[in-house]
Nucleic acid binder design. Structure first.
Length: 423
RNA sequence: GGAGGGUUAGCCUAAUUGGUAAGGCGGCGGAUUUGAAAUCCGCUGGGGUUACUCCCUUGGGGGUUCGAGUCCCUCACCCUCCGCCA
């Protein structure tokens, strides 16, 4: 959610931002109209309430004196009726306004390149060289099935397409990755480990910005009106909802391992094989609450924290800056990290690091009191995967595969695995 | 699932039979001071307005009333106990 400032004083900035993102800016006119209507009703209602408050004091006083107040009360009954009418109108206008306002995405940071979709994202740099193979590298689903560590047939029977059963060293590798990620971020990068619920109420999904726009992307438990989270970000954005934090406590750094659930509606036929795109996956998520002036430095730090994992795993990757057309709804600036997967011959997104500035903080009403002024301000929130496991799993199988279909385990994972290869 | 108790501002705590939320702490600003402490004064969340001595805010929503923290209904969350389950 944005400050109303953008609707009133900085309307051109808002319209320009929407256009850059490829949104229809016509919604702004409607919002302006509703906002004006809303304010008109507030003024009208305030005036009537002021009269009512004043006259009610007269009622109390006169009643104590034993005077006849029946006329006054009859008059006030009228005033109350009008107040009620106005309040009803106002509630309608406000709910319409809010509905539209919640659909407005964040304003892209000035450093974000303008572009219409993911084809216009910018590759900023590449780290590590893709390995030269003296044989044709196989895709992970072939390697995984042959090694008996991934079972797609059984998963399809149990749960349908886009699921996988991990077995034996496959399951262990998955668990090793999660533990390795958590250990690096808690020990080396100073994050506090958090294990949040993976089922959340709708208001939490609104706060994180996943509702209303991504309703179709989330699994919904109708009986209890709960959503399965698509990312730990959804839960973590609510950690300090409706709180005023101490300035000294910032930045607050959290790391969470959670399963993530995505319906992948509309992606039929895309990445149907293997575990590139699945309905349920594991992810270790970094999340920070910062002061506004620090958030862009923190964005770079978080990118480095996520990169550290790939460096330790010795996997080649590249950093991509998302253009305005591909930027996430809540994000003002995002870097993606893509790892090289030689078996499928593609760069795969394993992390997305975003600064939402105060966008989520407004929705979640998360603020801090600034010591120098004593005033409350919204914090900035940032999130980044550190990392998502399936595509890291893919990259390990495909990059560390041998000609005979066996896979070497990266050095740093061996203490977690207890073995040096999957054969 | 059943019974009872609770939710007041950043935190803590009040509020006769319904008369419009009182204090304390913390924080910020100011006065005083060589500086600090102490003391005193003001401010403290949201909104509207050219502006104000204006409006709103007692967990959410609704109702009764001229007027609701207070009475009624409903929902959420927390605590205690019972039942069920792990």
């Amino acid at each position: 959610m944005l400050s109303f400032e953008f609707l009133r004083e900085k309307r051109e900035v808002l319209i320009k931002a929407l256009e850059k993102r490829g949104y229809d800016a016509a919604i702004v006119d409607e919002l302006v109209k509703l906002d004006e209507e809303r304010r008109r009703l507030i003024r009208e209602g305030d005036e009537l309430r002021r009269i009512r408050n004043q006259r009610n004091e007269d009622v109390a006083r006169l009643k104590k004196q034993g005077a006849d107040i029946s006329e006054l009360i009859a008059e006030l009954r009228q005033v109350s009726r009008r107040i009620k009418e106005i309040e009803e109108k106002q509630a309608k206008v406000e709910s319409k306004f809010k509905e539209l306002w919640l659909q407005i995405p964040n304003i892209p940071h000035e450093s974000v390149p303008i572009g219409k979709d993911e084809t216009e994202n910018k590759v900023i740099r590449q780290e590590g060289e893709p390995r030269e193979f003296d044989f044709e590298p196989k895709p992970h689903w072939e390697l995984g099935e042959k090694l008996g560590i991934l079972d797609f047939k059984t998963a399809a029977k149990m749960s349908g397409s886009r699921f996988a059963v991990y077995k034996g060293l496959g399951a262990k590798l998955e668990r090793a990755l999660i533990n390795f990620f958590l250990d690096v971020h808690t020990r080396e990068h100073g994050y506090v480990e958090v294990m949040p619920p993976v089922l959340v109420k709708s208001e939490s999904a609104y706060a994180s910005g996943h509702l209303p726009k991504f309703r179709e992307e989330m699994y919904f438990i109708e009986q209890d009106e709960l959503f399965l989270i698509p990312t730990a970000e959804t839960s973590l954005a609510n950690l300090h909802r409706d709180k005023i934090l101490d300035e000294d406590s910032l930045p607050l750094k959290y790391v969470s391992y959670t399963p993530c659930f995505r319906r992948e509606a509309g992606s039929y036929g895309k990445d149907v094989r293997g575990i590139i795109r699945v309905h349920q996956f594991n992810k270790v998520e970094l999340f920070q609450f910062t002061k506004p002036e620090d958030s862009y430095d923190v964005l770079e730090q978080m990118l480095a924290h996520a990169e550290k994992i790939l460096k330790l795993l010795k996997l080649p990757y590249r950093i991509v800056q998302l253009c305005t057309g591909d930027l996430g709804f809540a994000s003002a600036k995002t870097y993606d990290i893509e790892v090289w997967a030689p078996g499928v011959g593609r760069w795969l997104e394993v992390s997305s690091v975003s600064n939402t500035e105060s966008f989520q903080a407004r929705r979640s009403n998360t603020r801090f009191r600034r010591k120098s002024t004593g005033k409350v301000e919204f914090v900035h929130t940032l999130n980044g995967s550190g990392l998502a496991t399936p595509r890291t799993f893919i990259a390990i199988l495909e990059n560390y595969q041998r000609k005979d279909g066996t896979v070497e385990i990266p050095e740093v994972l061996r203490p977690y695995m207890g073995v040096s290869e999957i054969a």
